[in-house]
Structure formats: structure tokens, C-alpha cells
Design a protein around this nucleic acid. Structure first.
Lengths: 341, 341
DNA sequence: CGCTAGACCGAAAGCGCTTTCGGAATCAAT
DNA sequence: ATTGATTCCGAAAGCGCTTTCGGTCTAGCG
């Protein structure tokens, strides 16, 4: 099976290799006649340029990488899937590739980033869920790779990012609960080395203050983002002498666990204890009871992020690409007014 | 910023480019001394080989592609995420890349596959959820790309695949329900142009036969794999003069909908109407009631599939790589004995 | 001490494409 | 008919790496 290369086409057409290349790439110095002739023959032989040669010659990769969050099972989280989907389809429209790369361990992360930037494999990268201080971001800046962050680190002035305002969401979340009469509002948070974890906690705190509620460390639990962790934290708080009547959760998954723990304690979520989640997972409508949550408007985040990244690759100034979205409340059944004790 | 290339290293070391390359790649004809010297300098300058050049020279891509299912939002399905995660980490261990490619539309699918195979971008590809007759498989065979199918098409003798025996699972599923006294077992299936849809339906039918149950077309619904579709189908069947006492669902997502529809009808799932799902989604433990389901043992499917693919890329015969796994029952609360009417 | 066999490295070709540069051919204008 | 511009294409030089081939040098042997 003869591999059809430029050389092959050139021979077939009786013209020079370079001419074929220029014809295929619509250079202006090729006559209409030969351009068409070339393209026809190319189609006939089903010519597909070797991407590696092309990339080597042009120096542009026409590919972007998504750097998976370092923690395990991260890809199973819906937000990753949605992001990938959007990125993938946007990229595909332009004929670019999407690389999904995982650092095998936190130690090799730097190595991975370096390799990504130095090996010419990609023209840009996107990462998610930065830590407050994130090494990946530093490396990306250092190696001068166009990148965009899904989320923000603490110092986010000088790079491009796309984020949902979790601080505001949790501030407002407390307000929603307070308005329903809740005074004893617990918080189940995510690890605060993640900046989003910190911001949601900050929002919660500010929300408390805005509503003249006192902060009680006993009903603030920073735990893993899993249902089991959410359940354990909830169980513990329910055993308090003065248990919370509402629980604000940093993630829906934790909220699922909270629901379970409340039922386990013989109480009814949404009636005796309200639960407000965050993420807007579709699945929340099937829990018992359906979960009220603050949804990230991330249906098109992948596309937006892709557009932003491409703009930066094309020479745009990263600082011009910082998008902050707001979460929106999805009312279901897990939040209700406080009941008289 | 001087790009550190082989040439650069060679000059730095005062030896030939080829020698540097061979040293770095552990060729046996390089003395231990220079090998170390080379590697040291390479590390010092943080040398990373340009992958495009490397690939061009060697002709091997060291990358595999996952071809996304053509339907939209496919990536959000947990099985895709899990697969990607496994593939990604296995590949990463070997320093290979994972490309996620989406055909922008069914029409461009052939084009996509062609390009993938001819452009030298990847050494192998994996696809999921084949149709009974699947064009992608034909194309992959035609272009002689190593590939492996997650699932099987109707004629699966001559290529490599990894599948879970849905036929058996549904046959046994009927048995489980029948043993609990159910005689009127409904089936909510997936579109039968997907081969897995057909196989699960076949299994259901054979299960009916094995248990001397009569097949009633009125309680067989082939619908989309969504919760809404599952709910609608369930609602319809519940309105029948002789409604089913148990429902077997082709996917957990449909089962979630079924649960909702049953509650909507004022009945209690797991008591008045049993629901048995398939997929083993972790999330099923949070439904109301928790969903009993047949789980795909897919936690490591990504790794296994990766190993199989690499073996084929290394020259293995695809036919030697056909793995059939069994589903395992996860007992939760949505299945119970039939109640006296 | 001469000869052969390794051990080790340099030189160079090539992977398949892009892109610059210059030359040939065509054409219009003087 | 000469010149100057254009138009179009061929030739060739890379892009950064791998890999073969042969040559030099040392060591080991008789």
C-alpha cells in the first residue's frame, strides 16, 4: 500500500512538491488551473497530510491539552466531562486536536507541564480547579505557554481565567437560608488549598455577617468532596447539642451525603433540616428529596474557554480574557423554611 | 530564549548530534561515560525532545485516540469518563498521549476516521458503543489501524473488543425478578441500532422464556437513554389495565426516571413496583429508594483496554484480544418480592 | 609486534512537509 | 523590439529528530 505523500502527488501531477503544497494551502501565487488540478488529484488519492511533518515544518501544533486535575477520579466529576465535551467540539470545528493529559503523580506534574510546553505537542493548555497557589500556573507562565484556567488562584490578575463566582453564590446562599428563618446554618466545605474551597468558605462567612448571624466553628466542616465525607460531617453536626437547621454544601456530591445522613438520623431533609448544594448536577433531581442547588452555568463553558484560549494563542493579551459568571439557583425540595423547635 | 535542541546539546558537548540522540535513547553502542555525560547536560538544560520531529523520524505516533460516541453529550455519561480516565493514566505511564476526538457530525465521521489513520497522529484508536453494523469499525479495518471496540457489533469475530455480557445480565436479571415472584416484568430498553440495546433486549426475552413467562409487547418500551424517557415509558405502562410489578431497565439513567414515575403514580418503588437497573452508577445509592442495579465491572476497563490496544499495536493479532466480562448485581432497595394484589 | 575484533562515535541521509527565493515565461507598455 | 512588471512555478533549504553505515581507536590474541 503506497502511502500517498506530497512527493507521490507531485510525481503523479508532474509538478514540484512545493507547488503541490502551496496549491493545497491556497497560496496566492498558484494559478487557479493548477490549484484545482492538484486538489482534484489529492482528493482522488485521498491525500491526508502527515500532521507530524506539517507541525514540524510550521512549528504550530494545532492542538491544545487539557491538564487533568491531579486528584484521582477527577475525570468522573461531571464538570470535567462537560468541559471536555465543549472543548472537544469547539476544537474539532477548527480541525484542532484535544489532548487529555494526566500527570501520573503530583511530583511529576512539573515535569508534565514542562514536557507539554517544550515538546511542541500543543499550542495551549487549559487546567481546572487551581490551588490557592498553583504550581502549574507558575510553570505555564514561566514557559510562556498560552493557557487558561478554569477557576482562579489567589493572584489571578496576570493570566486568563474563566470562573463562576462561588464567593457570591455562597454569600447569597446564606441569605436564601436566612430569609427562610434559619439561624443555625452549617457549612460543609471543600479543602481550602483549592482556591474555590477558600472562596466558598469566605462567601459563607460574609453571608453570615450580612445576615447578622454568628459564626460557629462547630458547624463548619472542611472535608473531601465526596458523598461519604458529606454524610460523616453531617452526622457529626446533627449530634451537636444545638444542631443546625440548614446545611450549605460546597459541592452537590457532599450534599447527597448530607441528605443521606439526615435521613439516617431519622429526620426529613427539606423539612427538619434544609440542604443547599452547589454545582447544579442534573442528577440532583433524583435524590430524596430532590436537591436544591446553585448551578454553575457551565453548559457552554467549554466553548467559551476554547474561544478564549484560541484568542490568546493568536496573540491576545491574557489579561483581557477573564470571565466571571454567576451561579443560578435551582429550586427543588431540599430547602424549606425553618420549623419551630 | 534559545530553544534547546539536539544540535544545541551536541555543540555544548562537543560531540555529534546523532551520538547525543543515541545516548539519550540508550543505544548499546554508546559508552557508559558519554551516556551519562550527555544525560547530565540534557537535564541541566532541561532538554525535551520535539515530539513532532521524533514522530516524523520514527514513524510512530506514541498516541492513541478515543473516538467519542457520535451522539451529543456522550462524554457526560459516566462510562465515557471512566474509560478516559483509565486510558489516560495507563497511557501516561508509558509516556503516550491520549487524543479525544469528536466527529463534528455523523457525516464527517468517515472523514474523521480517515484523517486519524492517514495523518500519522495516532498509533491506535478505541471506540465505544458500536451500532449493530458500525461504519467506524469498517473504516478502521479498511485503513488497517490498530483499534479496539468497547462493546461489540453484530459481527465481532475479526476484531478486538472488550465487552460486558449484557445479554447474560438481562437474562439473569429476569431470573432474579422471577424468583421474587414477579410474573409481569416490563423492559425499558435502549435503541436497538446500538448493539448493546439489541443484546439486552435479547437477554430479556430469553430470560422470560427461561422462566416460562409470556412475552407481552405492551410492556416492552424501546426509548432513549435518558431519565425523562424512562419516566415516560414507565408512566405509560403503569396506566395499563394489567401493569407490570417489576421493570428492568437497560440503563441506570432510565431507571432513575422509572423510579420517579412510579412515585409520581402514588406507588412505592421497591415495594409495589420493583426496578432493576443496569450500569452500576455510583450515584444510584442516592435515589429514592436506592437503585438495585447490575454493575459493569468497568473500574479498570480503561487500563485493560489500553493494554489490549498496545498489544495489538505491537503486532498482536486482534482476534486474540476479545474480552467478555460479567456484570455483577448490586443489591440496594428498588427490588423486592411481588406483593399479593 | 602485527593482526583481528570489538567498542565507540561521526557523518550523512532521510522522515514529509513548508516556505523563501529566484528564474522563466507571459504580457503590456514605450 | 526593448524594457519592466507580473504571474506562476521549480529548486532547495530547512524543521529537529532517528538510524544506518562506516571508520578510528583500543584491546586482546597469537
Amino acid at each position: 500500500m503506497q502511502r500517498v505523500s506530497l512527493k507521490f502527488l507531485a510525481k503523479e501531477l508532474g509538478i514540484a512538491e512545493g507547488t503541490v503544497s502551496r496549491a493545497l494551502n491556497d497560496y496566492p501565487d498558484i494559478s487557479e488551473a493548477t490549484r484545482e488540478r492538484v486538489k482534484e488529484v489529492a482528493k482522488k488519492f485521498n491525500y491526508k497530510a502527515n500532521q507530524n511533518a506539517r507541525r514540524l515544518a510550521t512549528g504550530v501544533a494545532e492542538a491544545v491539552a487539557y491538564l487533568m486535575p491531579p486528584n484521582t477520579h477527577a475525570i468522573s466529576e461531571p464538570f470535567v466531562s462537560q468541559l471536555l465535551e465543549g472543548l472537544g467540539s469547539s476544537l474539532a470545528k477548527r480541525g484542532w486536536d484535544l489532548l487529555v493529559v494526566q500527570a501520573s503523580s503530583p511530583e511529576t506534574e512539573a515535569e508534565t507541564v514542562e514536557k507539554l510546553s517544550s515538546s511542541g505537542k500543543v499550542s495551549g493548555v487549559v487546567i481546572s480547579r487551581p490551588y490557592k497557589e498553583d504550581r502549574r500556573i507558575e510553570l505555564l507562565k514561566k514557559y510562556n505557554v498560552p493557557f487558561i484556567v478554569h477557576g482562579r488562584s489567589v493572584n489571578s490578575e496576570d493570566y486568563a481565567w474563566y470562573d463562576v463566582d462561588g464567593e457570591k453564590a455562597f454569600h447569597d446562599g446564606v441569605g436564601i437560608l436566612a430569609e427562610l428563618g434559619h439561624q443555625n446554618i452549617a457549612f460543609i466545605g471543600a479543602p481550602t488549598d483549592y482556591n474555590f474551597g477558600q472562596m466558598r468558605l469566605d462567601g459563607y462567612r460574609r453571608g453570615l455577617a450580612s445576615n447578622n448571624l454568628t459564626l460557629d466553628e462547630a458547624i463548619i466542616k472542611i472535608v473531601d468532596m465526596s458523598d461519604d465525607a458529606g454524610a460523616a460531617a453531617t452526622a457529626k453536626m446533627l449530634g451537636l447539642p444545638h444542631p443546625p437547621t440548614a446545611i450549605l454544601c460546597a459541592t452537590d456530591t457532599q450534599a447527597f451525603g448530607a441528605l443521606a445522613a439526615i435521613r439516617e438520623a431519622g429526620l426529613t431533609p427539606g423539612i427538619e433540616v434544609s440542604v443547599l448544594g452547589y454545582d447544579g448536577l442534573d442528577f440532583g433531581k433524583h435524590t430524596n428529596p430532590p436537591l436544591t442547588t446553585m448551578a454553575q452555568p457551565q453548559s457552554h463553558s467549554g466553548e467559551e474557554i476554547c474561544d478564549m484560549l484560541l484568542a490568546i494563542i493568536d496573540g491576545g493579551n491574557p489579561v483581557d480574557y477573564q470571565e466571571l459568571r454567576s451561579a443560578i439557583l435551582v429550586r427543588r425540595m431540599s430547602v424549606g423554611p425553618v420549623r419551630p423547635q
